[in-house]
Design a protein around this nucleic acid. Structure first.
Length: 423
RNA sequence: GGAGAGAUGGCCGAGUGGUCUAAGGCAGCGGUUUUGAAAACCGCCGACGGUGCAAGCUGUCCAGGGGUUCGAAUCCCUUUCUCUCCGCCA
């Protein structure tokens, strides 16, 4: 969410952001609602002021004066009772529109509509040249017995899967490796609730725009989160954090749930796009300062890259274009791992600076050293998401006989197992 | 799931219909004193909105929502959360 005063004063900037981010919201409707809201407040506040004035006069008034005052107060109350619902309706319109206004992309962000408009920043590692026909991860998982595909699809539906045996252990291993790396770099491990109220999703910017993406549990008015970013950011909703306590750096470990409502028919095969997965996510609360935020952003990015280096996976880093950024994001880097089965770099990490966007929605403030209050900046990045990360691990490290030689860093987490072979 | 007790500013805590512009304390900020610091003393000190060049004026907020009343932190209803006991349970 942006400051309405900022929106009024920078309407053109906001209009450009809406266009470039391909958001569906009517800025003029918002400005109209804002005007109507403020006009309404002036009228209602004047009535309320008189009402308060009369209420304070009555105890001091004589017996003779009282009936007149009470009469006037009753009239005013009737007026107010008529005006308040009208104002509330205007405010509701205003609030709904405010929630759909995107944050402003930073100047370095390329303007573009689709993935192809992202700007490559660097490539690290070289995709391996195979002297045999490499298998894709589906074949490898089947060959090595890492996944049960058919069972889950019968009782849990499409995009479901079960990791089995070494497959399940591999997920634990890579997850634990990520946790250890982040803890060593000063992040605090959190295993948060994954069932949350609507407020957490609105507060982090996933609602109202992404309502279709979330699983809802109607009976309890709870939603399953698609990332632990949601509970981690919400952990400090309504808090006033001391400047000295910042930055706060969390590593969230959770199951994530996504309906993939807009992806029907896309990536239905294998482990790439699934409804339920495990993710270690990095979340930062920092001072509202662009320079400090930039430093944190690149530290988060570096953590993800370290992970991929340990996993010996070639990857590339791209600066996402405006059309590929979420509503609240002001700068986003995507890290794409090389996946031989897709013959492409594909997204495994997403590193975002959100500015004050989430803090305004979730009411997360900082008391600065000079005593003033401000909103914090939030940032987030994937550390590792499984099973998607299993794809480049298996595909890049496969051998001609269908076995997989695990990257060295993973071996201790695999109880010393160096190679996956069919059992 | 059942019964009961609670929720007040950054924190603790008083406040059972008008004088609440929320006592008092802690923390914070400024000052006096001091070589410096501490202590003591004095003063300041909630958030958000509207309006205004500004000074100021004004509205809302005592967990959330609704109601009663000329007037609600206070009375009523409701939701959420916390605590105690019982039940169930990995």
């Amino acid at each position: 969410m942006l400051d309405i005063a900022f929106i009024r004063q920078n309407a053109d900037t906001v209009r450009a952001a809406i266009k470039n981010k391909r958001c569906d919201v009517d800025l003029d409707a918002l400005l109209d609602a804002d005007r109507a809201r403020r006009d309404g407040i002036v009228v209602v506040d004047a009535k309320r002021a008189r009402k308060n004035q009369i209420a304070s006069l009555i105890p001091k008034a004589t017996k003779e004066e009282r009936p007149t005052l009470i009469e006037e107060a009753k009239t005013i109350r009737t007026d107010i009772e008529k005006l308040e619902p009208e104002l509330a309706a205007v405010v509701k319109t205003f609030d709904d529109l405010m929630l759909r206004i995107p944050s402003i992309p930073r100047p370095e962000v390329p303007i573009g509509a689709v993935e192809a408009d992202n700007v490559e920043v660097r490539k690290v590692g070289t995709p391996r040249t195979f002297d045999f026909t490499p298998k894709d991860h589906v074949e490898l998982c089947t060959h090595l017995g890492l996944v049960n595909w058919e069972g889950p699809r019968k009782f849990a539906g499409g995009r479901s899967y079960a990791l089995i045996g070494m497959g399940a252990l591999l997920e634990l291993a890579v997850t634990r490796m990520a946790v250890d790396l982040l803890m060593a770099r000063g992040l605090t491990l959190v295993t948060p609730p994954v069932m949350v109220r609507e407020r957490a999703l609105t507060g982090t910017g996933f609602f109202p725009g992404g309502r279709e993406e979330a699983y809802a549990m109607e009976a309890d008015e709870l939603f399953l989160v698609g990332t632990s970013e949601v509970p981690l950011v919400s952990l400090h909703a309504d808090d006033i954090l001391e400047e000295s306590a910042l930055p706060i750096r969390y590593a969230g470990l959770s199951q994530c749930f996504r309906r993939e409502a807009g992806a029907s028919g896309k990536d239905t095969k294998g482990l790439y796009r699934v409804h339920q997965f495990t993710k270690v996510e990095q979340v930062i609360f920092g001072l509202p300062d662009e320079e400090a935020a930039e430093k944190e952003h690149y530290a988060l990015l570096a953590n993800a890259e370290s992970l991929l280096e340990k996993l010996e996976i070639p990857y590339r880093v791209a600066l996402a274009c405006t059309g590929e950024m979420g509503i609240g994001v002001t700068r986003k880097h995507e890290v794409e791992s090389w996946m031989p089965g897709r013959n492409a770099y594909s997204e495994t990490h997403s590193c975002s600076t959100m500015g004050e966007f989430q803090a305004r929605r979730s009411n997360i403030r900082v008391r600065k050293a000079d005593g003033s209050l401000g909103f914090v900046y939030t940032l987030n990045n994937t550390a590792v998401a499984s099973p998607r990360i299993l794809i480049p691990i298996l595909e890049n490290h496969q051998n001609a006989d269908g076995s997989v030689t695990l990257p060295k860093a993973l071996v201790p987490y695999m109880n010393g197992i160096e190679k996956l072979t069919p059992r």
